[in-house]
């Protein structure tokens, strides 16, 4: 029973990341009609915003300490981070400790800017082109972004720890008499993801801008007939979708050390999520994200992999194939989308 709950929790975590990425993908597809294969790379860049902020905060003055030696026998260079010199050691260490949550503030404008630049610079030239062209160009962009990150940060995953206060395990099962410890940060991530998802939905439902976007997603032509230039609004939506993917990445870094390949790792699954949930359906994307995350988690258990070897690698695609055969519009998609 505890093993079961543990796998469900695991699945909700991974599923949160999928849901956020799929949300952004669906926003882009629903508004701009673009299949954006660079979206996974946006998730990866968000994660590297975390890494970058960590590096920036760790920028140090270097003093030579003759009492200690480095590997070549020369006096050891002792690094003191600037934030420590400015704010005192305790405060400085604290700031560095909280670099991942602080990266949220850093990442939002960075991701918005990257999203808008991507859209205005490259993607907008492909609106009218067939989806295959869009896939090729965004995929190419994803590879370029990935190689740039690899050139700067190396190929190995980079540790980005959670703040000490949120870094332990929590006993969840005590109240119900189960032995269930779960990492605090993973729980934090889940709630963070829900907050972001909630924020996006609230934005769409309760703001005028959101209403215009919803209208544009439903009937782009008619919105134009009412005098509204939907393209500008959609550019901003691209930026927002990029920011959502980026935030998902920022906060995911303590769970799994980020590396340049995250984009591709998460991209394929996120597209499957979007297809299963229904292209163009935002609630569908979120729901499917969590479902597939849990499904993947269960398929990775020893029980599953011994019963059907390799199930964990193909389960997601199996589900996608079944959905496409049985109900092409996805779980919550509008009838007619993707059904030709």
């Amino acid at each position: 029973m505890d093993a079961l709950l543990l796998q469900i929790l695991n699945g909700l975590d991974k599923g949160s990341a999928y849901a956020l990425i799929a949300l952004g993908l669906t926003l882009i597809f629903g508004t701009l009609g673009v299949v954006n294969f660079a979206h996974g790379a946006l998730f990866m860049i968000g994660a590297f915003c975390s890494v970058t902020l960590n590096k920036i905060l760790n920028l140090s003055t270097v003093t030579l300490d003759a009492t200690q030696k480095d590997f070549l026998g020369n006096p050891l260079k002792v690094k003191t981070p600037y934030v420590e010199s400015w704010f005192g050691e305790a405060a400085g260490q604290s700031i560095i400790d909280w670099s991942v949550p602080l990266a949220i503030i850093f990442a939002i404008p960075v991701m918005l800017a990257i999203g808008v630049i991507m859209e205005r610079g490259l993607i907008k030239h492909f609106y009218k082109r067939p989806h295959a062209d869009q896939i090729l160009v965004t995929f190419g962009l994803a590879i370029v972004l990935q190689e740039v990150v690899k050139a700067f940060f190396g190929a190995n995953p980079i540790q980005t720890p959670a703040p000490d206060a949120l870094d332990g395990v929590m006993d969840l099962g005590g109240a119900i008499g189960l032995q269930l410890s779960y990492p605090v940060w993973r729980i934090t991530y889940f709630f963070f993801a829900m907050a972001v998802i909630g924020g996006v939905f609230a934005f769409l439902r309760f703001t005028t801008f959101g209403m215009v976007v919803r209208a544009g997603m439903a009937d782009r032509e008619t919105v134009g007939l009412l005098g509204i230039n939907i393209d500008k609004k959609f550019t901003i939506m691209f930026g927002i979708a990029a920011a959502v993917a980026g935030l998902a990445g920022v906060m995911y870094t303590p769970i799994n050390p980020p590396n340049y390949h995250w984009g591709m790792d998460f991209l394929v699954l996120s597209f499957v999520v979007v297809v299963v949930g229904g292209m163009g359906s935002l609630p569908g994307a979120v729901l499917a994200g969590f479902l597939l995350g849990i499904l993947e988690s269960f398929a990775s258990t020893t029980w599953a992999t011994t019963t059907i070897p390799g199930i964990n690698q193909i389960i997601i695609y199996l589900v996608a194939i079944i959905i496409l055969l049985v109900r092409p519009r996805g779980l919550m998609g509008r009838a007619g989308v993707m059904e030709e």
Binding site: D2, A3, L6, Q7, N10, D13, K14, P157, Q179, S181, R186, I255, N256, N259, H261, W262, D265, S297, S300, T301, T302, T305, N312, Q313
Partner: peptide
């Protein structure tokens, strides 16, 4: 337990170790 070389998230493999 065998883990595929391409795995990046080992949480579902680590979780069963506890019990």
């Amino acid at each position: 337990v065998l883990t595929p070389l391409a795995t990046t998230d080992f949480s579902s493999y680590v979780a069963p170790v506890l019990n």
